[in-house]
Amino acid sequence: MTSTTTPTRASAAAGALVPGGTPSSFFRESFIVFRRQLRMNLRNPAWVIIGMLQPILYLLLFGPLLEPLIGQFGATNAYTFFVPGMLVQLGVFGAFFAGFSLIGEWREGVIEAERVTPASRTALLVGRLYRDLLQLFVQALILVGLGYALGMVASGTGIVLGVVITLLLGGACAAASNALALTTKSEDVMAPVINMVMMPVLLLSGILLPMTIGPEWLQRASDFMPIRHVVDAVRASFAGDFASSGLVWGAAWSVVMFVLAVWWGTATFRRENA
């Protein structure tokens, strides 16, 4: 037909190949996956707009409700209190839903096709996490910017630290969501599981209202909720309370959850796999 030069197999060996299994090949592979995911997300602008609108609506519509109550929380500035909680909520809840798109891809054979390439299994997962983290990062920027505009008081260092902790937590939740998606392979099974996890997280993490205003037993119950400690840590960080033990614990929790979730996610991409 049109082709006169049928490619020979020798050309594949002739050096067009980037060697695999190195840190740079890992970064390259995960970036290919990330770019592909981002391209598909940007093709759906409604989805992007909703993602951006979310933090704005929460701040504008829920923030004013907190202002008259803030004294009772032992805090002085409603937005310094509320923005960290909002950050964590976006990190957790947005990321929990990341896995749903993976099920669609799995059904169309995309995951199988990626798994049959020599690319690192971790890169296949992490490339998808970059996308979720990018989204979370943009949301965080909007949240922080708007928070400042509304009167939030926080140091630059505190904000950076708080956002990093949030990103770790968001990455953990997105990885777990992806792992769950590849394990259940069904939206119908996954949705109730996510709902079951979200309920206690929302109620026991002190995201909207601090746990400290609740009765003793409720506070003790929330001690068992790792995400509550992360919320406390991000709040301490924004408040400039760098010496607090809550900050250390929360940061530690977010690192632990991130490592565990990425390990779990990689295992599901690797599973049944030689």
């Binding site: 980037v18 695999g20 090949s25 592909r36 391209r39 598909m40 990626e114 390439t117 690319a119």
Partner: peptide, 18 residues
């Protein structure tokens, strides 16, 4: 829902090809 060419290129690049 992705463009055919994009899918082919990304797939090939995962093999380490330029």
């Amino acid at each position: 829902g992705a463009r055919a060419g994009d899918e082919v290129v990304d797939h090939g690049m995962l093999y380490g090809l330029q």
